[in-house]
Measured scan of single mutants.
Amino acid sequence: GEDLPLPPGWSVDWTMRGRKYYIDHNTNTTHWSHPLESGPSSG
């Protein structure tokens, strides 16, 4: 998808195989999909 801006506290990194993933430092979790690309989340 597009390179959307990341929310505060997020960063992007790549695996050893070159796969892009996103790090949420607020909750110390990692995600394969961009936080703003996922569907609407409630709460």
Rank of each mutant, 00 (worst) to 15 (best):
G18S: 02
G18Y: 05
S42K: 14
T27V: 00
G1P: 11
N26T: 09
W14D: 04
D24M: 01
T29D: 03
W14A: 06
G18V: 03
N28C: 15
H34P: 05
L4D: 09
D3K: 08
S33W: 11
Y21E: 00
E2V: 11
L36S: 09
G1I: 12
S33F: 14
W10T: 00
W32V: 03
T27F: 04
D24L: 03
Y22T: 00
Y21K: 04
P35L: 01
G39A: 14
D13Q: 15
N26A: 07
V12A: 07
P5L: 10
S38K: 14
S11W: 02
G9P: 01
Y22E: 00
S11P: 01
D24R: 02
T30H: 11
W10N: 00
H25L: 06
T15I: 04
V12Y: 10
V12H: 05
P8S: 08
S33N: 14
L6G: 00
D3G: 09
S38H: 11
K20Q: 06
E37T: 10
W14L: 07
W32P: 02
D24H: 05
G9H: 04
R17E: 15
Y22K: 01
G43R: 10
G18P: 00
T30A: 10
D13T: 08
P40I: 12
S38W: 11
D3W: 09
H25V: 04
V12E: 07
N26Y: 06
W14V: 12
N26V: 07
D24A: 02
L4E: 15
W32G: 02
L6T: 01
S42A: 14
V12P: 05
L36F: 10
T27E: 02
K20N: 01
M16V: 14
G9I: 01
R17A: 15
S41C: 14
P8Y: 08
D24W: 03
G18A: 03
V12K: 05
R19Y: 11
G9L: 01
P7I: 00
G39M: 12
H25Y: 06
Y22G: 01
G1C: 15
P8G: 05
S42Q: 13
P8R: 06
D13A: 15
R19W: 09
S38N: 12
L4W: 11
W32E: 03
S38M: 13
S41Q: 13
L36V: 06
G18C: 08
R17N: 15
Y21A: 01
Y21R: 05
S41I: 11
W10S: 01
R19T: 11
N28L: 05
P8A: 10
